[in-house]
Design a binder for these strands. Structure first.
Lengths: 220, 220, 220, 220
DNA sequence: CATGAATGAGGATTCATTCAT
DNA sequence: CATGAATGAATCCTCATTCAT
C-alpha cells in the first residue's frame, strides 16, 4: 500500500521531523473517516478506536480536532496544486514549445489523474471542507490566485499568441480546462467509481474534445 | 426576494396542502443554515432561533432533524432535474430538429442557469448531502439513471445520426455536457460568486466551445 | 364489556354529575396505558391518541396529568376497600354469627375476587402509584387505619372470643388474611394470568388452608 | 452502613473486576433514587447530582439509562433467588430430613428475611420494574421456572410423601409459602416499615400458622 | 509519551401545558 | 366545548477536551 507514503509526504510540509507510528495511525484513521462521514459527523473517539490509540493520544499531537483536520487538509491543498505551478514544469513547457499545447494538457491531466487516483479520499475531504470553512476557502483561493493562475495564464497566453488556441479570454480558457479536468476526475473517482471505466480512452477523448473546442476558428 | 416562492414550490411536491407560516420560516432558516455551515454543523436550536420559533416547533413538523433535511433535499433533487426529462421538452427538440443541437443546448443551459441563480443555496446543500448520505446518493443516481439519462441519450444519438455531433460514445458526450454546464454554474454561483461575471457572454462562450469541441471531424 | 360500567362507577364517587363521552374515553385510555406502561412512561399525547381526542381536551377536563391519575386512583382505592367496611356487611356477619368465620372469609374473598377480576388494570395502577406517590400512600393508609382495620378487627376478635380462631394478635391475623387474599389475587391476575387456573378450587384450597392455620390449637 | 458491601457483591456477578469509586457512587445513588421515585421518574441528572459526578460520567460506564437499571436489577434478581436453589441448600434439607419441614421453612424464611433487611430498596426496584419491563418479567419468570420451582417442588413432594405436609397440589403449597413469606417481608419492610415490629415473634407466628395450615388432616 | 476516566457544555428529542381559533 | 399548533423546560445522550496516573 502506498498509504504510508502520502502520510509521510504530508508531514514533510508540516515542518517537523518525522511522524511517530501512532501519529501516522491517527492521520490515516482520520483521513478515512473524514472521507466516509465528513468532519463534523466523525467523533474523535471513533478516530481513536480505528487508529488503535487512546483518545487522549490524539490531543497530545493535535491541540484540537480542527487542528487535526487542518494538518490533513493544508498540506494536501498544496500537494494538489503543487506540480502545476512548479516553476520548472511551466518553464519546460514554454521552452519545449514545439511540443504544443496538447502535450502540456496531456501531461498536466495525466499527472493529476495519477495523483487523484492515489488520493481520492483526500479529494473528498478537501471539497467538503473548502465548501464550509471560510478559512480553508481563503487559503485555497490565495493559492489559486497567487500560484496556479499566473503560471497557467502564462502558458495559455503563450499558445494563444502562437495561434494554437482560440482567442477566448484566458480566464475562460482556464475555467474550461479546470472544469473539464476536475469534472472528469470527480466523475471517475467520486461520483461513479463503480462504473466500468477505460481511463486511458476517456482521458484521450477529453483531451481531443478540449483541443478541438479550444482551437482557433478556421478563418482566424 | 423570491424565497417564499421556492419554499411553496417545495411543498407542492410534498403532496400536502399548504405550508403554515411557521413551517415556511423553519424551512427557510434550515436552508440558509445548512447551506452556510452544513447539515451536521447546524444545530436545531440555531435553526429555531433564526426561524423565530421554539425548538419544539421544529419537531412538531419534522419528526427528526434528518426528516427536515430530506423534506428540503428530496423535492429539490426532483426540481433540479425535472425540466430536463420533461417529455415535451425532449419531444419538442426532436420534432423541431431543424433548430439543431445548439438550440437544445442553449435552451437547457439557460434554463438551468436561471434555476440555479434562484436556488444557489439548495445546490450547495444537495452537493454536500449527496456526498455523505448514501440514501441521498441512491435517490440521486436512480433519478439520473431512470429519467435524465435516457432522455438526453435519445437527443444525443439523434444528432449524432444527423451528423451534427462527433462520433464519441454518448455517455462521454453526456458527461462532457454535464461537466461543463454544472462546472460553469458551480464556478459562477458557489466558487467565485463575488467575481465580475458577464453571464450572457460566458454562457455563449461555453456553448460555442462545446459545439466546436463536439462537432464532427471535418473528414467525417 | 363491562368497561363502561366501572368508569361510570368511578365518577359517582367523583361528586360530579355524569361523564361526557369524551371524558369516559379519556379515562378508559388512561387506565389502559397507565396499567401497561406505568404513569410516568405514558405521555398525554399517547392517551389522547388512544382516546381519540385532541391533547388539549384532556387538559380541559383535568388540570394536570397528575390530576388525571388521581381521578382514577382515588375513587378506586375507595371502591377496592369499600365492601369490607360497609357497616351492614360487618353487622350482618356479627349477627348471623352461626355462619361462622369461614363464611365471612369466603364471602369477603369471593367478593374481592370478583372485583379484581373485573378491574385488574386498576389494581396494577394502584400498586404502582401507592408505591411511589407519598400522597397516595397517606390516603391509602388512612383509609386502611380508619375504616377497614377497626371493622375487621371487630370481626376477628369476635370469633376469637367464640373460640373459632387461634389466640394470635389480631393484627397478625389480619395481616395473614390480607396477605393470603391479596397474594392469591395478585398471583392469579397479575403475576401469572396466563397459567391454567381453576379459580374455585384454588380459592377453596386457600380458605381451607387459612381456616386450618388459624384454628385454635386442639389443647386450647 | 453495609451499602458498600452489596454494591461490591453486585459487581461480582457482573463478571468484571472491581468497581471504580465513581461507579459505586453512581450505583448507590441510582438504587436510592429508583427505589424512592421509580425508574421512569428519576432523571440521570438527578442521579449524577446525588452521586457527586458529572452526568456524562454515568454514560461512560453505562451506555444508556436502561443499562444502568439492568446492571442493578439483573444481579439482584439472581442474588434474591440464589440461596433457594443452591444445590447444597436443598440437598442438606433432604439428607437431614429428620429436621423436618419446619426447619427447612424456618431456615429459608430467616435467610430471606436477613437478605431483604439488608436490601430493601432493591426489592422495591425489582417489584416496580418487573411489573412494567417485559424483558425483566421474562428473566424473572425463567429464573423462577428453571431454578427455584424444581428445587422447592422436590422438597415439598418429599415432605408430602413423608406425611408431614397435607396433600395439596405442590404448586399451591409453593404459592402459599411464597405468598406468606414475601407478603410478610413486604409488609414489614415496604408497606409498614415504621410500625413497631417484633420480628422474631412475627416470623415464628407466621411459621406456626403455615405449619398448622399445611399439616395433613388428622384423619389422613 | 500514552492512557482513559472524568468532565460539562451542548445536541436532538420529548412532553406537559397553554391558548387562539 | 374541542382543537391542535406552539411552547420551552427538561430529558437522555454525545463529544471534544483535560488531567492524574
Amino acid at each position: 500500500m502506498s498509504d504510508k507514503n502520502w502520510i509521510q509526504e504530508i508531514l514533510q510540509e508540516d515542518g517537523e521531523g518525522q511522524l511517530t507510528p501512532k501519529q501516522a495511525q491517527i492521520l490515516q484513521a482520520a483521513v478515512e473517516m473524514f472521507a466516509e462521514k465528513g468532519y463534523a459527523s466523525t467523533s474523535t473517539s471513533e478516530i481513536a478506536k480505528r487508529a488503535g490509540v487512546a483518545e487522549g493520544t490524539i490531543f497530545r499531537h493535535y491541540k484540537t480536532k480542527k487542528e487535526l483536520l487542518y494538518s490533513i487538509v493544508s498540506p494536501m491543498i498544496v500537494q494538489f496544486a503543487a506540480p502545476l505551478f512548479a516553476r520548472h514544469f511551466i518553464d519546460d513547457v514554454l521552452e519545449r514549445d514545439h511540443e504544443g499545447f496538447e502535450d502540456f494538457l496531456r501531461h498536466a491531466f495525466r499527472n493529476r489523474y495519477n495523483f487523484v487516483k492515489e488520493n481520492a479520499p483526500f479529494l473528498k475531504i478537501i471539497i467538503q471542507e473548502v465548501a464550509f470553512q471560510p478559512e480553508m476557502q481563503q487559503r485555497f483561493k490565495a493559492l489559486f490566485a497567487e500560484k496556479l493562475l499566473p503560471s497557467v495564464q502564462k502558458v495559455v497566453i503563450h499558445f494563444q499568441e502562437k495561434g494554437e488556441l482560440a482567442d477566448i479570454p484566458p480566464e475562460t480558457v482556464i475555467r474550461i480546462l479546470l472544469t473539464n479536468i476536475v469534472g472528469m476526475l470527480l466523475t471517475r473517482f467520486l461520483i461513479m467509481p463503480d462504473q466500468d471505466w477505460n481511463d486511458d480512452e476517456e482521458i484521450e477523448r477529453t483531451i481531443a474534445f478540449l483541443m478541438k473546442g479550444l482551437q482557433p476558428s478556421s478563418s482566424e
